[in-house]
């Protein structure tokens, strides 16, 4: 309290000295100074003692800063601190709210972006799958054509072989029959050649 200043701006020790001096001066005035006007006033029912007034001023001069530093100052500080804390809490809440709003908009934006990316990825995968399907279909078609050509070639080969075998067999049958008819062996190379030429000529196409 010694370093505190009162409302008037004077340091407390100065106020204390002034207060004590006024109390002492008031006591002296009350006991030794008598004013005629105040005596008449007291006779009329209004007692006024300047000494008491001066001393009371001295007491009050000391009392005001003491009450201020003892309670009113701390109370004001507590109320101001609480108000400041409330304001800070509200500010923090407001900040958190705006942060949450920002996070929410970020989240929504990211959600939209994710959905968009997912859609694009799905479309991309669908495209890839379609391409793969086309490729697989083309491969399958190509291999089927290859198998078909191969099978046709095999059939052709087999047909030719069978025809050749059949031709040989027919030649053998013909020769056998002719041999039986003629009673002689006509199984010469020249005859075979003739017969083969004959069969070629009479062969039905396809």
């Amino acid at each position: 309290m010694a370093n505190q200043k009162s409302s008037s701006g004077l340091p407390f020790p100065v106020i204390l000295v002034i207060g004590i001096a006024m109390m002492a001066g008031g006591f002296y005035v009350s006991k030794n100074v008598h004013i005629e006007f105040l005596t008449k006033l007291a006779e009329q029912g209004i007692s006024l003692d300047p000494g008491k007034t001066i001393s009371a001023i001295g007491v009050l001069l000391i009392l005001f800063p003491v009450i201020r530093s003892f309670y009113i100052g701390p109370l004001g500080d507590a109320i101001s601190g609480r108000t400041a804390e409330l304001e800070r809490t509200f500010t923090e809440a407001e900040s958190l709210r705006s942060e949450m709003t920002q996070m929410r908009s970020d989240y929504e934006r990211r959600l939209v972006e994710t959905e968009s990316a997912a859609r694009e990825q799905i479309q991309s995968e669908i495209r890839k799958a379609q391409e793969l399907r086309g490729q697989l279909e083309a491969d399958a078609r190509s291999r089927a054509d290859e198998y078909l050509h191969k099978a046709q070639a095999d059939i052709e080969n087999e047909k030719n072989r069978v025809i050749t075998d059949l031709r040989l067999h027919v030649v053998d049958l013909t020769l056998g029959a002719t041999e039986k008819i003629l009673g002689e062996n006509v199984d010469s190379d020249r005859n075979r050649k003739l017969i083969a030429e004959f069969i070629d000529k009479v062969e039905v196409p396809g």
């Binding site: 409302s7 008037s8 007692s47 006024l48 300047p50 007034t53 001066i54 009371a56």
Partner: peptide, 16 residues
């Protein structure tokens, strides 16, 4: 209830 004390209060108030 003492006029002298009240005058002291008033003098402090008006003086301030």
């Amino acid at each position: 209830a003492d006029l002298s004390f009240n005058l002291a209060l008033a003098l402090i108030s008006i003086g301030y």
